[in-house]
Simulated assay, not measured.
Amino acid sequence: MTPQEMESARRELGNEGKISLHQSVEMALMDGYAFIGVNGGKQVAGSTNMYSMIDSMLDYEKKYGTINVKDNIDSLKSLRETLEENDVNYSQRRSIVV
């Protein structure tokens, strides 16, 4: 998923009320959108794996988090679940029977 696709998903899910403002900000940080003003007006380049980024953030929060750790972990888990539920490609990969 490109950063632009992540940004599009962030806006759509936010507008539909499927993610909180906090989760929207987390996604904006992941896809680089939050840094457009300091990144020459560009998002980060290339393809990114949003799910592995969320998993990395969860691991980091579990090991090093100090403020609102439980709330942050719950928010990241909820964000991941919402993204999975609304990601057609993710749903198709999970439903393939080998």
Rank of each mutant, 00 (worst) to 15 (best):
Gln23Gly: 02
Met50Phe: 00
Leu58Asn: 02
Leu79Cys: 10
Val88Trp: 15
Met57Glu: 06
Leu21Pro: 01
Met27Val: 07
Asp59Gln: 12
Asn89Trp: 01
Asp71Arg: 13
Leu76Pro: 03
Leu58Tyr: 05
Ala45Ser: 15
Arg10Cys: 11
Ala45Asn: 12
Glu12Leu: 05
Glu81Thr: 15
Glu16Asp: 09
Thr82His: 08
Leu79Asn: 06
Asn39Cys: 10
Tyr60Asn: 10
Ser75Tyr: 00
Val98Ala: 05
Glu26Asp: 08
Ser91Cys: 09
Gly41Ala: 03
Glu84Thr: 01
Lys62Tyr: 09
Met1Asp: 03
Thr48Ala: 14
Gln4Tyr: 00
Ser52Gly: 00
Ala34Gly: 08
Ile19Asp: 04
Met6Ser: 11
Lys42Leu: 02
Lys42Val: 00
Tyr33Trp: 10
Met6Gly: 13
Gly17Tyr: 01
Asp55Leu: 04
Ser8Thr: 08
Ile67Tyr: 15
Ile19Phe: 06
Ser91Asn: 11
Leu83Tyr: 09
Lys77Glu: 13
Asn39Pro: 07
Met1Glu: 08
Ala45Leu: 12
Gln4Arg: 07
Arg93Asp: 09
Tyr90Trp: 10
Val25Met: 12
Val25Tyr: 13
Val97Met: 09
Asn49Tyr: 03
Val69Glu: 08
Ser75His: 01
Lys63Gln: 14
Phe35Cys: 03
Asn39Met: 03
His22Cys: 03
Asn86His: 13
Val38Met: 10
Thr48Val: 15
Gly32Thr: 03
Leu83His: 02
Asn72Tyr: 13
Ala45Val: 12
Asn86Ile: 02
Asp87Gln: 08
Gln23Val: 02
Leu79Trp: 00
Asn89Asp: 09
Thr82Asn: 05
Val38Ile: 12
Glu84Val: 11
Gln92Ile: 10
Gly40Cys: 02
Arg10Trp: 04
Val97Cys: 09
Asp87Met: 04
Glu16Ala: 13
Val98Cys: 05
Ile54Gly: 04
Arg94Gln: 14
His22Arg: 14
Tyr60Gly: 07
Asn86Phe: 04
Tyr33Arg: 06
Leu13Cys: 06
Gly37Tyr: 15
Gly41Asn: 04
Asn86Leu: 03
Met53Phe: 10
Val38Phe: 05
Gly17Arg: 00
Val25Ile: 14
Gly46Phe: 04
Ser24Asp: 02
Tyr90Asn: 04
Asp31Thr: 07
